[in-house]
Design a protein around this nucleic acid. Sequence first.
DNA 1: AGCGTAGCGGAAAGCGCTTTCCGAAAGCGC
DNA 2: GCGCTTTCGGAAAGCGCTTTCCGCTACGCT
Lengths: 365, 365
Amino acid sequence: MAENGQPTLGDVARAAGVSLATASRALNGATQVRADLRERVRVAAERLAYSPNAHARALAKASNAGVGVICHDIGDPYFAGIARGVMRAAARHDLQVILGSTFREPLREISYASMMRGQRVRAMLLIGSGFEDRAVQESLRREVDLYRAAGGRVAVISRHRGLRADAVLPENRAGAADLARALLGLGHRSFAVLSGPLSLTTVVDRLGGFRSALASWGIEVSQVVEGAFTRDGGYEAARELLRRGLAATCVFAATDVMAIGALAAFREAGLRVPEDVSLAGFDDIPMIRDLTPPLTTVALPLEDLGERVMELALLPDRPARARIERVTGRVVLRASTGAPPSGAPHEGHPHQPEPHEGDPHEGPR
Amino acid sequence: MAENGQPTLGDVARAAGVSLATASRALNGATQVRADLRERVRVAAERLAYSPNAHARALAKASNAGVGVICHDIGDPYFAGIARGVMRAAARHDLQVILGSTFREPLREISYASMMRGQRVRAMLLIGSGFEDRAVQESLRREVDLYRAAGGRVAVISRHRGLRADAVLPENRAGAADLARALLGLGHRSFAVLSGPLSLTTVVDRLGGFRSALASWGIEVSQVVEGAFTRDGGYEAARELLRRGLAATCVFAATDVMAIGALAAFREAGLRVPEDVSLAGFDDIPMIRDLTPPLTTVALPLEDLGERVMELALLPDRPARARIERVTGRVVLRASTGAPPSGAPHEGHPHQPEPHEGDPHEGPR
DNA sequence: AGCGTAGCGGAAAGCGCTTTCCGAAAGCGC
DNA sequence: GCGCTTTCGGAAAGCGCTTTCCGCTACGCT
């Protein structure tokens, strides 16, 4: 009996009248143990409420039933949705999940990764765009490489650059382009974008896809305002947009969460959506269906994303090249977008070059 | 060097030219190691990218830097909000979080608890009401007792019954009573409740508090419809309510998540909120502020709840009696509640006994 | 200068489990 | 019925770390 009162495998073996090794085999293995003995061991374990020490087991087996998951904010519906999928997949494989929420602090991401390497988790999942900071990227890269060198598996969502890990990649460019075309189809000819931090590939791709689809109609995005990837970030960005003077009939927010904030800002300013301005987001987090008006968006199967990234990390053979699973976003037109108001700014001269404060950021890659 | 390529403490010691024990002390302890040696070890560890094997450490120390957290659905904003707080507190204490999401399957809760016992986590956090099933409760109770007997610490949110664990308990009764009084103050005299499963103490308390406040005005709840603790559960319950014929000017949904569904159902039925019917929820999940209309609710500091339950579990001395922290819910009146419509049913005869299909459930405990 | 004491480094014993390596027991054919 | 093959159970060696227990060194004191 271990000092803390927990029975050990030895206790079980003794209670069952077999050797320690036999008890181990009886409990774990498909190995050959006589049926009656196996049963006796099982009963003894049951009776003692034996719970194998996972650490001892992991140490002896040099493998582990844990996976590490690092996301930016478990309170954010986007990550919560993905986490849901991850949990489901993990349960299917009898894996336990060690969760890290960075709260968008780069250093915390590194330290989580390092901690998970120490835990010898079987796989490490990085969910969401990486941080811009070069040094941070370098540290993370190093950490991940060490982890992989030790046999760990890494898979990511929305973050392929520089990590060459297996990845689930939402097709941000194509999705945003589809959205742009749908909005053009509604009659809009002038657009503003509330982007997230322009350092994130996710944002660059969404903005880029949106722009390129417009470009083939000879239209440019009138205004871009950067904001944090949060509800309040969207709210502030929308306020900034209004402060600058809204010069668009349609606003595209880089994420639904931001769009929610934008909606609030517009409403506060007395703008009706979609009568005065159309608004679209990206991701399709569950709650936006219940907003008034329900939000047009590019739907990503969040829970699926989580399940797939888990499965990806668990695939046995590591090919030379990283496996990439692309996930299509489906445009869902809801009531937050409609025809542009008649008398809208720029209507009738869609091809005019737009002199405005412009955005200093490079186009799509 | 371990076979998987990870350097071991022995490697570090050799590289630093000290003994294994010295290396261990240098890295961990406030124990006495000469400063220059300590530094040499640190450098060697750094250079080798040494990451101590957490399992070996946990095994040797018979303690562990992990805590287990079990909730019902990490995708639900209520639990996601609490989880956020837990993560924050865990990070403060350098603890890693092993997360379990039961998806409301009782057996999964047991198996998570058992798994976490095997992990020898330092603390176990159970978030949210327990399951009704007697056998399930018994198993969980047994599991928890074994875990505690082995020195584990358990803390819970919203689940005191039968576990005698330290608990953070939202004051559901008082909160619901306050809400009822506020609604009475708005002029309402007839009420329907969309409750969650009546087997949950949370629901019983909220319903009970609501009822008892009404009772002191001689008013009874006209209708109670049970539904699942989800958006769709609220939606369905509201539809059922409408099907039976809404006989109230104000509807109280046991959780915000349910209220969101109810709002959708009412809107679909052409009922205006709050002009035709007032609607209130409970919890104050972030998104309800952005609904139209914003939802009246009883605000719980979700993130705080998470931080507090974590801190509670970490408190060193275990007193004979469980520590209970009660958390007050604050009524937040928003636009989803207003004065009852004139010509509302029952108006003018608030004290009449209400013969209707009634609810078979006992009153507040 | 000699002795006592404190402090620091090294050897070694586990932590609880898995797993290999053997020896023993059982089953089979002739 | 005897020897050989096949199973199966037990002893023991780690997995990587912490920690106790010693012995040695170096310093301080008289």
